[in-house]
Design a protein around this nucleic acid. Structure first.
Lengths: 342, 342
DNA sequence: ATCGTAAACGCAAACGATTGCCTCTTAACT
DNA sequence: AGTTAAGAGGCAATCGTTTGCGTTTACGAT
């Protein structure tokens, strides 16, 4: 059905290998300019489309990379994906997007699946908490780059952001506004990003001698609902925080829901700094002070790094790229004032 | 390097075809239970992973479908993608995501590319305005489903929403609130979705005898910036609209920016109904009245339909599925009151 | 002893493209 | 004339799986 090299060869009365060489523009073997023209004309005439599957099979190179992320509908990951796709496409690659929903098993299945399909590399925002998995993966010699989440003790290529410092800076900012009781809406405790943010939060709390209580830290999920529940629990404490640091695109939506429901006004009743990469934050009733990520840059770095590793498989050096988060001060934080009921 | 059927066969002293049959659980040829066990044990022992590339090549079936969308970072498409990925995965397929950025040429390249790679089907939110392209594509006998955007005159499988009726209903709602001068922030005029919304808008305007002026319709793009510019032009007319119908996830962000900048208060100074699928709209200063889409349902329908077409290629019937948009009345609309300066 | 037959498995082609190596022709050079 | 070399292109193997068709063996029936 589809036109193959053979069809062209038959029509041109040459050998398929000749056609292949011409179409690949392979110069190791000489082909006369005349035959070249002739073959190219016939190829065009027959509308020859190379069977990329056959090529990939033969060459062991699919021009495809896999992207493994927890949730494509989360603007953080969709933003990164957008950037990755652009870079990939320009380099002549295709992108297989794999959504794990933070499910360990699904992620592993996808990795195996991608490898069996012969992809050339992977970019992974992992939900694994098991270093060994990735130290094993490294041995398989398929290039990959971790993104956003990584393992401090494991030398893997990765692109991540300054979670610890940014959390520290956020708390410091709130301290400077007079807040001493700062809540942390955490997110999934096992993720490296969250752990680092927690570290930054705790270090600041301790360094500045702020209220250091376990009850000020809540949440261990990533959904809107979990953000809502955790925020509500924080804000209905006997002695609730006067400021909140929120982690995660989804969680912050839940947090806003809870804040609204409790009829608290930002920033008068509560100061809020949110880790979020949503576009709308500047246009809210009270524009949120945010810590956001340079999504395009992250995607670009990850792809560049991966392409490097793909093109030089013998180069085993590990590259770890840290990008700066963006601290945007808007109206959701203000000087701490005593509560009515105090 | 990788373990192949041959390796297993060699070790088990059988022919590769036997191993293949056992691993595929192909019952057309009898294999003794004993050999079966033995082979399976060896396969496990060697950690055999099938070369899916070779299988795909041989079987002409890649278990992969392509998704072509304008912008994965747009919550409308990322929401649909999320749903599609889920369905696809459950059916044992992989998803190649192709981002066109509303670029006609890139879309066409991607389609060709995907076909050369032997994907089993496509789901396309096209930016083509050329029916012929798709009538040609139909002839290639590769199953595809259009999503969101389609061609009224062309019998293609598709999943779309009730753009016309929803726009009509929105205008009617505004009329009932006393608005007579209703602006339409349009979006890319050539898209079927936009055209239909415009039709609904115009029909309502005429049926209810509202202000029918060309200057009330603005915008022909899809970016935040274009939404901002168009909104600003509408709201700074000599005789500006008292209500606005906004089309497109991105545009609405720009619209909010313009509204904010002009220091207009929703809904007192302006009523706003937006086509948007962003999660945040309920939590804005003034929660937006929206027309949104059942993204999960759309993705699911598209996949189901595509899978049907893939599994029964001989069935040439065309299925067109219309889903209902969701009209959520919130606080951004109110009764029309005369402007101060009138 | 012969035939039939079913069970169990082997054989080899095929999918389409690539590539190292070989062959043939022609022309230049000694 | 004979040698050499370059130019132009053919040959066939190969990538890993699948599958239609054969072949062998064993065993029961005649």
């Amino acid at each position: 059905m589809a036109v193959t090299l053979r069809d062209i060869a038959r029509k041109a009365r040459v050998h398929p290998s000749t056609v292949s060489r011409i179409l690949q523009n392979n110069r190791t073997v000489k082909i006369s300019e005349e035959t070249r023209k002739r073959i190219l004309a016939i190829a065009r005439e027959l509308d020859y489309q190379p069977n990329e599957l056959a090529r990939a099979f033969r060459l062991r190179k699919t021009q495809t990379i896999g992207l493994i992320i927890p949730d494509i509908s989360n603007s953080f990951f969709s933003g990164i994906s957008h950037s990755i796709e652009k870079q990939i496409y320009d380099a002549g690659y295709n992108l297989v997007v794999c959504n794990t929903n933070e499910n360990l098993e699904k992620e592993r299945k996808y990795v195996r699946n991608l490898m069996n399909r012969g992809i050339d590399g992977m970019i992974i925002a992992t939900c694994q908490n098991d270093e060994k998995y990735f130290s094993d993966l490294k041995k398989k010699s398929l290039p990959f780059v971790l993104i956003d989440r990584f393992f401090a003790n494991l030398a893997t290529n990765c692109v991540f952001s300054d979670n610890k410092n940014s959390a520290f800076a956020a708390v410091e900012k709130l301290k400077n506004l007079g807040h001493r009781r700062i809540g942390f809406l955490r997110g999934r405790a096992q993720l490296s990003t969250i752990r680092l943010r927690l570290q930054g939060y705790l270090e600041a709390i301790r360094q500045f001698n702020l209220d250091d209580e376990n009850e000020l830290i809540a949440g261990d999920g990533f959904t809107v609902e979990e953000g809502y529940a955790a925020t509500k629990s924080l804000l209905t404490l006997q002695n609730p925080p006067t400021a909140l640091l929120t982690s995660g695109n989804r969680l912050v939506i839940g947090a806003m829901q809870a804040i609204k429901e409790l009829q608290l006004k930002l920033p008068d009743d509560l100061s809020l700094i949110a880790y979020t990469d949503n576009l709308f934050t500047p246009y809210l009733a009270c524009p949120l002070t945010t810590i956001s990520h340079p999504l395009a840059e992250m995607g670009e770095s990850a792809v560049n790094l991966l392409m490097q590793k793909i093109s030089r498989p013998e180069d085993k050096t590990v590259v770890q790229i840290e990008v700066k988060t963006i601290f945007s001060v808007r109206e959701s934080i203000s000087a701490c004032r005593p509560r009515m009921d105090e």
